[in-house]
């Protein structure tokens, strides 16, 4: 088990109810972005020399960061549902964040 802080991608995402069968709370918005428009992602996790942070959408690698900065601007994705997640590697230990599924919608 890694001793690094857990890799987490920060993005609005409903964490689920503590009761069974309830709907999403009023005013809650799932993860939606406009398609084909730059957007920002931030994750958190391991910190240290040699840190490598990779952002993915499904099997597609969106960006690789080397250093300690987790913040990144990404090109817009095409319309559709994309599972976005971060992978961090430090000192030979790799961790994967939970994915967030984001629907990218085209503006009419």
């Amino acid at each position: 088990m890694s001793e690094n802080p857990k890799t987490v991608i920060h993005f609005p995402s409903f964490e689920g109810h503590d009761t069974f069968g309830h709907p999403a709370p009023h005013g809650w918005h799932n993860s939606f972005l406009e398609a084909d428009r730059p957007f920002e992602l931030v994750a958190s996790g391991a910190v240290g020399d040699g840190l490598r942070v990779e952002y993915f959408a499904g099997t597609r690698k969106l960006k690789v960061l080397k250093g300690t900065d987790y913040r990144v601007m990404l090109e817009g994705l095409e319309p559709g549902l994309h599972a976005v997640y971060a992978v961090t590697t430090l000192g030979g230990t790799t961790e994967i964040s939970r994915p967030v599924t984001v629907l990218f919608q085209a503006r009419p």
Partner: peptide
């Protein structure tokens, strides 16, 4: 400027 949640 760059980040707007979009849910028509």
């Amino acid at each position: 400027k760059a980040f707007r949640e979009y849910h028509p």
